[in-house]
Design a protein around this nucleic acid. Structure first.
Lengths: 158, 158
DNA sequence: CTTACTGCAAAAAGTTTGCAACAGG
DNA sequence: CCTGTTGCAAACTTTTTGCAGTAAG
């Protein structure tokens, strides 16, 4: 179990190794990502959170940082189909466990942390000559508790 | 095994039942979708194909038609992360078999027509109180034949 | 006839880029 | 210092919208 500081240190080290610089803006963006690991934030949302402590940061910088982190596989860029890209930390413990439940009623996105697909990946390589490097599994549906209208929307449903 | 005309008839009937009108533009768009079932066309691509036989159609109309078809569950709107929405027919035979292989080398998107997830859906309902209405499974990786640079790109890789 | 549908052009929304100034190592 | 990085504004891309005219049923 790593602390946020440890995890940020690891990410920073990855940046340095690849010849990138640690800047105030990049650290602030990483911090927001680590502090909101459970969420699936959009660039805009990340931007606004970073702005709280760094009012002078530019939106373009956040986009450039997220691009960079995506390239380094520190975050994963996902699109749930609502027109904005969202960004998810890809710490070691999450690897290959990118399963999501999307509730069409309340818009909630829940992460499922189990790897159910190992077997299928073996099959794909054998049968299709396709070597899997990553996967993504998403279930759309609704929670029982949302079937009655009592649940509050957390996001525009997809 | 239904013919294209049969399948289009079914889609048309769905439109009528829901109180929508059958127009030249909607029929042309449906025809393009049925004639290119294997592809995952973007709105722009569909627009250009429709234009071949219907030069006066507007891009906005294609967007509006695709939205409508999506709402009626005649097509599925998917986003592979390359910045454009793509549209997939959702005929009965395909239901619950939306699995894709994305080759990061050549950009090809292949459909896998098997349902591997029944068991998981039962589990989600029991353990999470989540009733699945649809799912989506995507594998990113590369074909063995693409590992050497000999394969030609079919699309900007995601 | 009536109301839904269309084409066009303009607007919106999300993201990227060019550039001069700035700052990390 | 030197080169990567930043903020800003402008550009770009994809999608949506307003509106006056058109056509399906």
């Amino acid at each position: 179990m790593m602390s946020i500081l440890d995890e940020m240190g690891t990410a920073n080290r990855q940046l340095i190794v690849m010849g990138y610089k640690i800047t105030r803006q990049r650290e602030a963006t990483l911090r927001v990502l680590f502090e909101n690991e459970a969420e699936h934030l959009s660039a805009e949302e990340i931007f606004m959170l970073v702005k709280k402590n760094n009012p002078d940061i530019g939106l373009a910088t956040v986009y450039r940082t997220l691009d960079l982190l995506n390239e380094l596989d520190i975050v994963e860029k996902i699109n749930f189909g609502d027109g904005v890209a969202r960004f998810d930390l890809r710490s070691k413990d999450h690897e290959h466990m990118h399963h999501h439940l999307l509730c069409s009623e309340c818009g909630q996105v829940k992460e499922i942390k189990e790897d159910w697909l190992q077997e299928m990946e073996v099959r794909l390589e054998k049968e299709f000559g396709f070597k899997v490097s990553d996967h993504r599994l998403e279930f759309t549906g609704r929670y029982h508790k949302c079937a009655n209208k009592s649940c509050k929307k957390v996001r525009k449903a997809v």
